[in-house]
């Protein structure tokens, strides 16, 4: 798997198929990037489950915060890692453990060894990308900010 370049169908497929996303490193502070991504993805119909030991037991954007992936009492489709690259390995192993189908590491976050472990266990791995930006790009919404989506189509846009 080439992690420097992802085909658009791969990203589209992930964003169309997952519904419940655990966001590890979700912040309770409204001006943090993770809060931006969580709020955006909620509006697109995803259930975002915040994971953050410092906020465990509290609420972020209407969702209960868990201290670790293993504490979440229901099935998770995807784990979105909003932590530094050094933390990504153990979180990836936990994601495999809890049966997630996708591990997604945020912009600037990458751990190739962890990705190989997850892929061997049958998971799809996306690294160094942001699901909010990718959703905005593939739906054309991010073009409203003058961002170059690189998407060209003669069809009406509907979601991703």
């Amino acid at each position: 798997m080439d992690h420097d370049y992802y085909p658009e169908d791969l990203i589209r497929g992930v964003l169309r198929s997952v519904r419940t996303i655990a966001m590890v490193g979700a912040s309770a502070h409204w001006n943090r990037p993770s809060y931006f991504a969580m709020k955006y993805l909620q509006r697109k119909g995803y259930r975002i489950v915040p994971v953050n030991p410092k906020e465990a037991g509290g609420m972020i954007l209407g969702e209960r915060v868990y201290g670790a992936l293993a504490e979440i009492p229901f099935k998770i489709d995807m784990v979105d890692i909003f932590r530094a690259s050094q933390a990504a390995g153990p979180i990836t192993d936990e994601a495999i453990e809890v049966g997630a189908r996708v591990v997604w590491m945020q912009l600037g976050v990458r751990d190739d060894a962890a990705a190989r472990r997850a892929e061997r266990a049958g998971l799809t791995v996306i690294m160094n990308r942001c699901p909010k930006i990718e959703y905005g790009r593939l739906s054309g919404e991010i073009g409203w900010l003058g961002i170059n989506t690189r998407v060209i189509s003669s069809k009406r846009k509907k979601g991703v």
């Binding site: 409204w30 809060y35 931006f36 709020k39 955006y40 509006r43 919404e141 409203w144 900010l145």
Partner: peptide, 13 residues
């Protein structure tokens, strides 16, 4: 939605 737009958390006009 208005608050999210003003806070730059969602894309929109």
């Amino acid at each position: 939605h208005a608050a999210s737009l003003f806070n730059l958390q969602v894309f929109g006009n």
